[in-house]
Write a protein that binds this DNA or RNA. Sequence first.
DNA 1: TTTGAAAAATTGCGTGA
DNA 2: TCACGCAATTTTTCAAA
Lengths: 152, 152
Amino acid sequence: MIKLDEKDRKILAILSENSSPSYAELGRQLHMSAPAIHDRVKRLKNEGVIKKMVAKLDGAKVGKPLLAFIHVDTSSWSVTRSILSLKSLSDVEEIHTVAGDSAMLLKVRTQDTQSLEGLIEKIHKIDGFTRTRSYIVLTPHLERETSPLLDK
Amino acid sequence: MIKLDEKDRKILAILSENSSPSYAELGRQLHMSAPAIHDRVKRLKNEGVIKKMVAKLDGAKVGKPLLAFIHVDTSSWSVTRSILSLKSLSDVEEIHTVAGDSAMLLKVRTQDTQSLEGLIEKIHKIDGFTRTRSYIVLTPHLERETSPLLDK
DNA sequence: TTTGAAAAATTGCGTGA
DNA sequence: TCACGCAATTTTTCAAA
């Protein structure tokens, strides 16, 4: 298990919200020098605590205003191949196998209701997937990144 | 509406997956100069197509190995205040009001099943929230960022 | 960890297609 | 309008202490 001190967590909390500030700027906030921040960030990346840096896009502005979650029921448990098919669909952002009254939960983002319907049709055609239940997002009230667990 | 050409979409596709490469490196891939890339990225940020850059953290390594989705039923429609209470809970990563057989869908990440139970208790205590159904993630098979819609 | 310096990347501006 | 080259500035990165 990786141990994170107070400063590590503070750095992670800031970077998970916005990774733009320079090391010098972070140093100012944490009362440390830029190289000290750099060393820690480098270590956190090496340890895999920070997986990667990414740009968050505006779904609507890149042509995908419709966000939805889809519960999928499966007929068998060997759906590994079917999950591979799902990954090739670029509108699918997340795939999780879950415990509960459905087997799988997808997060998808499409251009409109038509493309959502097309996507659901594709899912139904994939072997092993029986029923789907869709939840169209009306308003996304909060979307933030994973933040480190504080204290402990 | 913002119009994106082929190069914009390529830049967005790359940055949404990994924003670490330098402008020079991006330029090499797109056969453009670093300043040209810079101009476009700057424009995309100004237009709000790129909302921000963030660090993606490993949930387990920051002390939150348990990922779950929670459907919440509400007794009334004036839950704006209640949503505010939800936002203050740091384990809650996403809040969406949805159309379907439940009113709201949450994405949460906790330390263990106990803290998940504690979180669900807190949700039940919030005014206007009646029933919850939880789906604990067994395996996250795919987690990627929004990517731009291709062609069109 | 910090200081200091070298290397690299970012950014602004002027030019030309 | 858009991309490029050049150059100034800032940031990153690597030493040594």
